[in-house]
Amino acid sequence: MSENSSRPPALPWWVRPGVPAWRCAPASAEARVFHAALPDYAPTPLTELPELGAELGVGRVFVKDESCRLGLPAFKALGASWAVHRVLAERAAGGMRTDPVTFVTATDGNHGRAVARMARRRGQHAHVLVPQGVHPRAVAAIVDEGAKVTEVPGPYDEAVRRAAEAAAAPDAVLVQDTALPGHERITGWIVEGYATLCAELDEQLAAQGVADGPDLVSVPVGVGSLAQAVITHYRGRGRGPAPALLAVEPEAAACVLASLTRGEAVGVTTGETAMAGLNCGTPSSLAWPYLHGGLDAAVAVSDGAASRAAARLAALGVSSGPCGAAALAGLRAALTGAGADARRTALGLDTTSVIVLLSTEGTSANPHHAAGRALS
């Protein structure tokens, strides 16, 4: 046995040397105005969990709880509602036919259900393509929204490719949360919709006495569109210091971590993971410049770590599925274990730091099949 054989494997981790000076244009405030006018809109809770602050040796830990957003169990409805609204508004302004259109998308669950819900509300159709392994209950939930569902015998990236092909049909529109050539504007609207979450967060932190904002935000990452919205919010404003931004991915699908390590966007072969909504093999081309320029650190976590994080949040009264709980799992990985002191220093954290976890889904979004994969 070699001298080093008993050492634990190195943490899948990337950190930017120095403080990022990268800045971008600010996010539009139009989506927040739109969302606030919806009859079922309400800001999702921001919950402080002092127990986590004590466990992790920081000042305060808050969880942005997206377990019920516009009547659905995940944040995705923010982007889908704004994108559907913008598409229909542009068609009306351009004098296009008023016949119903079909909104097409690929999904591991929550995004597709959100698109289907918003299409139905507006009297439109939806066609949702799901990759292999999505739980039948997830498919049934999308069907219950009135959508046509096509199951694709392949991974998420293949479902995205086939969705783009399906959207070439007459009166069909691709509403995809990862950018594809020719469809970047609609993906950009989805990202704008996610920014409502960040605007709420500022107001809620100020009400909790945190006027200067958090010191770190932990963000679960799939193709990177939510992270793009968070980066735009904090790197696009002209006031105050920006927090450190930590991206968290499954070990089985760490495409952003691999891309940051290489310094260019790369694809990875994905495996099975309970964090199904993060099971993406390629960063969004629209998000990549923001991820490359604006993230401070990235970490990949195991399904076991996400499961333990979900259980801990549940014990503290927060409903969080594996994807949402990844934010806590990633924070734990960064702040504990071998090398934790160096990682804390790199992130600029100490015993007074304020941290926000974005819990992007509730437990109701996550039925498991026999192999352990969850919907997200």
Rank of each mutant, 00 (worst) to 15 (best):
302 S>G: 02
273 T>R: 01
345 T>Q: 14
270 T>I: 10
338 A>I: 07
245 L>T: 11
284 S>Y: 13
252 A>N: 09
219 V>M: 10
278 L>D: 06
232 T>Q: 14
229 A>V: 00
294 G>S: 05
246 L>E: 12
253 A>Q: 11
343 R>W: 00
299 V>E: 00
274 A>M: 15
270 T>A: 04
285 S>W: 07
248 V>N: 12
288 W>S: 04
223 V>Q: 11
250 P>L: 12
301 V>E: 10
350 D>E: 06
289 P>C: 07
232 T>P: 01
232 T>R: 15
280 C>M: 07
353 S>N: 09
281 G>C: 05
274 A>L: 15
345 T>G: 14
242 A>I: 03
212 D>T: 15
218 S>P: 07
282 T>F: 10
335 L>I: 05
289 P>Q: 12
292 H>Q: 15
281 G>W: 08
322 P>M: 08
288 W>C: 06
278 L>R: 08
222 G>Q: 12
348 G>N: 05
223 V>L: 12
289 P>M: 05
348 G>I: 02
325 A>D: 10
321 G>L: 02
268 V>C: 03
212 D>Y: 00
246 L>H: 03
331 L>M: 10
277 G>R: 08
285 S>F: 05
237 R>M: 06
339 G>L: 06
238 G>Y: 01
259 S>V: 04
245 L>F: 02
236 G>K: 09
270 T>M: 06
249 E>S: 12
313 L>E: 02
311 A>G: 15
216 L>F: 01
290 Y>K: 12
273 T>P: 01
324 G>Y: 07
278 L>C: 10
270 T>V: 15
221 V>W: 11
226 L>P: 07
231 I>S: 04
324 G>M: 10
327 A>K: 03
286 L>A: 08
285 S>D: 13
235 R>W: 05
246 L>T: 03
334 A>T: 01
337 G>F: 04
332 R>C: 11
264 E>G: 09
302 S>T: 12
334 A>N: 04
277 G>H: 08
294 G>H: 04
278 L>H: 04
324 G>C: 10
352 T>V: 00
234 Y>F: 14
230 V>A: 07
330 G>H: 07
327 A>T: 08
241 P>F: 00
294 G>Y: 09
305 A>N: 07
227 A>C: 11
225 S>V: 00
277 G>T: 02
240 G>I: 01
242 A>F: 02
310 A>P: 09
286 L>D: 07
